[in-house]
Design a protein around this nucleic acid. Sequence first.
DNA 1: ATGGAGGATAATAATTACTTATGATCAATA
DNA 2: TATTGATCATAAGTAATTATTATCCTCCAT
Lengths: 315, 315
Amino acid sequence: MINIAELKVFVTAAEEMNFSRAAQRLHLSQSAVSQNIQSIERTYRVELFVRHGRSVQLSEAGKSILPMARDVLNSARLLEDALSNVNGEVAGDLSIGCATTSGRYFIPNLLASFQRDYPHVRTRVSLMRRQDVLDGLLDQTLNIGIIGRFVEHRDLQIQPLLEDRVILIVPAHHPWANLKQVKPADVLEQPFISREVNSGTYEVLFDNLRRHGIDPDNLNVVMQLGDAEAVEMAVEKGIGITFISEMMAARSLALGRVKKVAVEGFNVTQPVYMVRHVSRMFTHAEAKLWEFVKLHHEELTAELLFNLADVTLAR
Amino acid sequence: MINIAELKVFVTAAEEMNFSRAAQRLHLSQSAVSQNIQSIERTYRVELFVRHGRSVQLSEAGKSILPMARDVLNSARLLEDALSNVNGEVAGDLSIGCATTSGRYFIPNLLASFQRDYPHVRTRVSLMRRQDVLDGLLDQTLNIGIIGRFVEHRDLQIQPLLEDRVILIVPAHHPWANLKQVKPADVLEQPFISREVNSGTYEVLFDNLRRHGIDPDNLNVVMQLGDAEAVEMAVEKGIGITFISEMMAARSLALGRVKKVAVEGFNVTQPVYMVRHVSRMFTHAEAKLWEFVKLHHEELTAELLFNLADVTLAR
DNA sequence: ATGGAGGATAATAATTACTTATGATCAATA
DNA sequence: TATTGATCATAAGTAATTATTATCCTCCAT
């Protein structure tokens, strides 16, 4: 009797046209992929791939079989999803790839709420580079992606998740600490801490600064750091000021280690998007998360900021 | 990842509503059936069957899952059949249940020819009672059934295979041995060997005798035997005469141990039918056998009789 | 109550199916 | 043309799975 795991190996190998890559996607050794495919070939006396030394190609037989193998896999997926969700109880696994650093701050909160409603869904979040998220979605290795920049792709469906405000933070004992508001031009005079500029997010920010009358080239940059967290830390230490996502700064703000200062006319937000593969079956769990996010993202953002503020009160 | 073998166990158990019977059908131990089903139940935290002491019933979850499980099985069957039949080469397994004794005589011949055309199809023939053939077809344990009486059933497709002539045979040294023809009434005077009457085939024969002016109750029955082969043997030994399928008698006739005598106006044939499950997928191998039989049954019958006749020539 | 039918469970044996390590082959390149 | 790197095949060892047999347990019919 044919075996679904083997079929999955075959289909993945056919998609990758490369056993080693297929092995990676399947979290298997290359040897296992070879063996699985040979196993099908042996039991049915078929040649699925034509081997040309260092490359493999689908044989005619392989090509004709592929759609049927996909059918089996699809109906199996349907069944598995149904099995995981009997009597309305949503269950299953969700693999989420998160590309944006702000994800680190709200995702745990989001998932905590989600888990409260759907306790049987197991979620796994991995932080990864944007491109890996997109690859993972197209690979179908990931169910949901979280990214910070818009993307358009035939196979990807994108949904705005939240808008993260960009704010100016200053050290707790900075002269501006108790100011209501400063003028854009004032920013140029203060020591500024920035991230290394190759960061995609930072390019977007710089564009926005320009649009609000702050030329990033004229910033008094006293320090450049690799990641946003380090930048935040540097501000806490009093080295300078910076623009940062409100969500990221929430904890430091709540602890009073940095202060938020409004910049006249400055109103920038960074979007966060949720992405999924469209042509792929929507499992119950996926659908529920998608729907959940659509319904609750605003209140979740508020709750997150509020909760972080609570940290100070609790002390 | 779900497992097709387990699904098959589940579906069979659901059909039988009895794990032990399912085990039999699957050629597995009852324990294995229990374990397979528990394995699904455990991995998906579902209750597929409700156990009531000594009986099991499909749970609501089981009921809702069943059609999807069937879908998976069907698409898998489709794939397997395709895999077995790439590049037009028909292959696969055929399980044939044969209910009629005449099957014993022509089936080997039929399959030998079939194998010549389709060498990669493995056939397995089991002789069994008529009811077991029908059950096996409905069970989908058998691909093809061979039976001697017509059957009508929503799920069964029936195809006449051949007509087996019923002839009167007499011992080689019987006074009639060289007669061209006798009258129906003459038969009543000779010692007659019959099968036990509960045999279904025999009832049909008796009806036919009556229609040809031979009242079976008036036969001079000197011996009753359990099976047709024994009857034939008894005729060879000179104990009496009998009506028998020409196909069964072919070997004895060819060896000259019995003689065929025509009875005036007597022209009875026993049909042989081929049956299959309609609502079931037609595998390539099945389709080929079906088609093969339709095309060749006449010449096969002729060939069979001729080949048997050859036995004498070869000596 | 008691025997039997039907399912669960435990222990064991057999088989599968991974993994790592290594070998073989081909293509690109120096 | 030898070398290197990429890629798949194969071998050996081991882990994991899965079936089997042998009880055991429970419920129902007698």
